Amino acid sequence: MRVSPQRSRLRLNGDAVLRGTRAGALRGLRLAAEHVLTESRKRVPIEEATLERSGTASVDESSLTATVSYDTPYAVRQHEELTYQHDAGRTAKYLEGPMTEQADQAAAIIAAQLRRSLRG
């Protein structure tokens, strides 16, 4: 009995893969930024919650970068002034601390979304 060789053909749609990967990266960046913002809001100095409510997470799709920011006239001063007294659990460096501490988790969130996008 003669067995004929089995052939397989794989077609890779590179453009679709790149689109999916980019979409996964954007989704991951958005989720990671939201995660850091959530952790940061737990520490932001709070009196009337104006500073906390001003926090936003955004993604620049063209450069694939995420930003977490607070937008009040005193946000930077509150972040940098280490001598200010705050309520328990609230502190200066309310954004820097969570960004550093959550870096591994943020990377894991992005990686999970990239993997998800590759599974299609």
Rank of each mutant, 00 (worst) to 15 (best):
R90N: 04
Q102S: 13
E39M: 06
E39A: 05
L118N: 10
L118R: 13
A66T: 00
T21Y: 11
Q6A: 14
R7K: 14
M1K: 14
R9T: 00
P45H: 01
L18V: 04
R43K: 02
A25F: 06
R19V: 05
L37W: 09
R19L: 04
D15W: 14
G24N: 11
G24I: 03
A111S: 12
G24M: 05
S8W: 07
V68A: 07
P98G: 06
L26Q: 09
R30D: 08
Q105G: 04
Y84E: 10
T65S: 15
E80M: 08
M1V: 13
E96Y: 13
E39D: 09
A88G: 03
V59F: 11
L31M: 13
T83V: 08
I46H: 09
V17N: 14
R11E: 11
L31G: 03
L10Y: 15
L31D: 10
V59Q: 03
E34R: 13
Y94I: 03
A106H: 10
E61V: 05
D71T: 12
M99D: 00
R77D: 14
T100A: 15
E80Q: 13
R19W: 06
G55W: 09
R116E: 13
T38P: 00
R9L: 13
A23T: 08
Q113G: 00
L95F: 09
R7W: 06
S40G: 11
H35R: 10
V68E: 01
P5I: 12
A32G: 08
R11G: 01
P5H: 07
S40D: 01
A88I: 03
G28V: 09
S54H: 10
T38Y: 00
E52I: 12
A107Q: 09
A16F: 08
T50Y: 07
E52K: 12
T56W: 02
V3I: 15
R90C: 00
T21G: 08
R41W: 01
R30F: 08
E61N: 02
I109W: 05
A33W: 12
S69W: 07
L10G: 07
E61A: 09
D87C: 04
L95Y: 03
Q102D: 11
R2Y: 15
V76H: 05
A92S: 11
L18M: 06
A32Y: 07
A107G: 10
A108C: 04
S69Y: 02
G97T: 07
P5L: 12
Y84N: 10
R119A: 12
Q78R: 10
S62M: 08
L118W: 11
A112E: 00
V17M: 10
R11T: 13
K93D: 07
A23C: 00
R27N: 10
